[in-house]
Computed example of a mutant assay.
Amino acid sequence: MGGGCNFASDRELARRVLSVAPDMRLNALANRACLHRVIRMCLAAGVRQFLDVGCGIPTIGTPHEVAQQLVPSARVVYVDSEPIAVTHGELLLNRTPNAAIAQADLRDIDEVLAADRVRRLLDFQQPVAVLMFAVL
């Protein structure tokens, strides 16, 4: 997909996957385009908060970039259980208003909703779009 948020092991895995499934790159790009359309549709419907569960390491065209480009006050919380993804996300979001990342397991919705960063940034009295792209 491009971008610089990847590791040598990621690039090697991508090379191997593409050698047996050459359309996977197009699938990944289509998935990202769908995510962007969903965010734009939610914003058009008045949703201003997003909970991206199972986000992984941030890549190009992240939900907060897409949402905040159109509505600067939009709020996005990313959630992942993988410590490296969370640490990397914290570094990238350190100076980004209205965006944060929390460590929690998507299989435990109580843990996700109880995460401090989720509770601090999202107002569950208002609509929240839950994004779960490429987690299954």
Score class of each variant (00 low, 15 high):
Tyr78Gln: 02
Val38Met: 12
Val76Leu: 04
Ile101Gln: 01
Leu13Pro: 02
Leu121Thr: 15
Cys5Met: 06
Ile39Met: 03
Ile60Met: 11
Leu18Pro: 01
Pro22Tyr: 00
Ala115Ser: 13
Gln103Met: 15
Phe50Asn: 08
Val20Trp: 09
Asp116Val: 09
Arg15Lys: 14
Leu70Met: 11
Val17Lys: 10
Gly4Trp: 06
Arg40Tyr: 01
Met132Glu: 03
Tyr78Thr: 02
Ala30Cys: 14
Cys34Thr: 12
Ile84Ser: 14
Asp52Glu: 14
Ala14Gln: 07
Val118Tyr: 09
Leu131Arg: 02
Leu35Asp: 01
Met24Tyr: 15
Ala14Cys: 03
Val135Glu: 03
Tyr78Pro: 00
His36Asn: 09
Arg37Asn: 13
Arg48Val: 02
Val71Gln: 13
Asn6Thr: 03
Val79Gly: 05
Ile84Lys: 13
Ser19Ala: 15
Ala45Leu: 11
His88Asp: 02
Leu43Arg: 09
Ala99Trp: 00
Val66Ala: 03
Gly89Gln: 02
Arg119His: 12
Val118Glu: 09
Arg37Lys: 12
Ala85His: 14
Cys5Lys: 04
Thr62Asp: 05
Leu13Val: 09
Val135Ser: 04
Val135Asn: 05
Asp110Glu: 09
Asn31Cys: 13
Val47Gln: 04
Gly4Asp: 08
Ser73Phe: 06
Asn31Gln: 15
Ala100Phe: 04
Ile57Ser: 07
Leu91Asn: 11
Arg119Asn: 13
Gln103Arg: 15
Ala102Ser: 14
Pro22Gln: 08
Leu29Phe: 07
Ser73Tyr: 06
Arg95Lys: 13
Val112Ser: 07
Val79Tyr: 07
Arg75His: 10
Asp123Tyr: 03
Val20Thr: 15
Ile60Glu: 14
Asp10Ser: 08
Met132Arg: 09
Arg75Ser: 12
Asp116Lys: 12
Leu113Ser: 11
Val47Arg: 06
Asp10Gln: 08
Asp80Glu: 06
Val76Phe: 00
Val66Thr: 15
Arg25Ala: 15
Arg95Phe: 07
Asn27Arg: 11
Val135Arg: 04
Leu121Lys: 12
Pro72Lys: 06
Ala67Glu: 00
Asp110Lys: 08
Asp116Arg: 11
Met1Tyr: 02
Arg15Phe: 00
Asn27Gln: 13
Leu106His: 01
Leu13Cys: 10
Cys55Tyr: 00
Asp52Cys: 05
Gln49Cys: 12
Ala74Glu: 09
Ala115Gly: 08
Val71Thr: 14
Asn94Ile: 01
Glu12Arg: 14
Ala28Val: 13
Thr59Phe: 03
Thr59Ile: 04
Glu65Tyr: 03
Leu113Arg: 09
Ala21Asn: 12
Ile57Gly: 01
Leu122Tyr: 14
Gly3Arg: 08
Thr96Pro: 01
Gln103Phe: 05
Ala8Asn: 10
Leu93Phe: 03
Gly2Leu: 04
Ala114Asp: 13
Leu131Met: 10
Ile101Val: 15
His64Met: 02
Ala85Asn: 15
Arg11Val: 08
